[in-house]
């Protein structure tokens, strides 16, 4: 097991480096003076007065050297020490910008993914067990329909119905102005989290159904039935637990899509998170901010995939001995 985890982590190192290269490319492709994104704005203001000092600073930071490998490795060194540079719009360090937004996004993502799992997996199992029933067709059609509707349309409809017409929930923001308590936060969380949950549950339903059907058609399920086991036990004990294993990977693979959904949802609900920050950064063409967001989400997705793979290996011991892995 230890060897498997180690190997799994080792093969993600090139991917991790790749993510930093993409972040670096985004930073370098953006127009503008690189000094703006790497020097503390207050210090820079003083330097601006004196062209000679400015030039010296440029040389000190290595901007006169080749972009690759010199500038890249210098930048990578800074990133590893937690220095992601400065935002050209807010003039604050990127680490602070992202740090102040991360908790809201994590909250939204975790709650909505949790809800999606709680909705999607049971429905997927039901549709598989009742294959070709009216219930199966109905739920499946709903899932396809939801997967074909853009997140922002669902979010707008949700706002229209629950916030504007029924006045049940707020239309946006993380908190009511002047309040910071938990009930207020949850009250604001319900709508965006539910929209995201529905969007993420749709593909989960279809995957769970496919995985469950495959298991239900396997021979050991027939054996379990033929030895007279109660159907509920066949499904709950024998089929479901095996069908669940591939779902672990699916949930991890859903995370990039969930992030994309979160970007749009945060924007519509004025949810003060990283997604909203990303749209703001792109709109203002703030290179270091965009780079920082790419790095953080890339690393987070990579970590989620590693955890999922390890979870898979724990759930299914056969994986560990697969020579192809």
């Amino acid at each position: 097991m230890g060897a498997y985890i180690l190997r799994r982590i080792l093969i993600s190192i090139p991917v991790l480096l790749g993510i930093t290269i993409i972040g670096f490319v985004a930073l370098k492709l953006s127009p503008g003076d690189p000094l703006l994104t790497s020097v503390n704005p207050e210090v820079l203001a003083n330097l601006m007065a004196n062209p000679a000092l400015l030039e010296a600073e440029r040389r000190k930071l290595g901007f006169d050297q080749p972009v690759f490998p010199n500038q890249y490795f210098r930048w990578l060194g800074n990133v590893l020490q937690g220095d992601l540079g400065f935002s050209i719009t807010s003039r604050r360090p990127i680490v602070h910008e992202i740090g102040s937004r991360l908790p809201q996004t994590l909250l939204l993502m975790i709650v909505s993914l949790g809800m999606a799992i709680c909705i999607g997996i049971p429905i997927g199992v039901i549709t598989a067990v009742r294959q070709y029933s009216k219930l199966d067709y109905g739920l499946n059609a709903t899932a396809i329909f939801l997967a074909s509707t853009p997140v922002f349309v669902l979010a707008l409809i949700a706002i229209y119905v629950f916030a504007v017409n029924l006045h049940l929930l707020p239309t946006g923001q993380v908190h009511t102005v002047g309040r910071t308590d938990l009930p207020d936060l949850l009250h604001h969380l319900i709508l965006p989290a539910s929209v995201l949950a529905v969007v993420n549950a749709a593909p989960l339903v279809r995957y769970t159904r496919a995985s469950m059907l495959e298991v239900l058609n396997s021979e050991y399920v027939t054996t379990a039935r033929s030895k007279g086991l109660v159907e509920r036990r066949v499904i709950g004990r024998h089929a479901f637990r095996n069908a669940l294993i591939p779902i672990i990977t699916i949930v991890a693979l859903l995370i990039p899509e969930a992030v994309a959904g979160a970007v749009i949802t945060e924007q519509i609900f004025a949810w003060n998170g990283m997604g909203q920050l990303a749209v703001k950064a792109a709109g203002a063409r703030d290179p270091s901010l965009m780079m920082g967001i790419i790095l953080i989400t890339g690393v987070a997705v990579l970590a989620a995939n590693i955890i999922a793979d390890i979870g898979y290996a724990v759930a299914d011991p056969r994986v560990r001995y697969d020579p192809a892995k």
Partner: peptide, 23 residues
């Protein structure tokens, strides 16, 4: 394949937002 993994690790919408903003 490692290059492919890298691109797939970053949420597509985010990556596309960033590069459309750049160009």
């Amino acid at each position: 394949m490692r290059f492919t993994d890298t691109i797939m690790a970053i949420p597509p919408l985010l990556l596309i937002i960033v590069f459309v903003a750049v160009v």
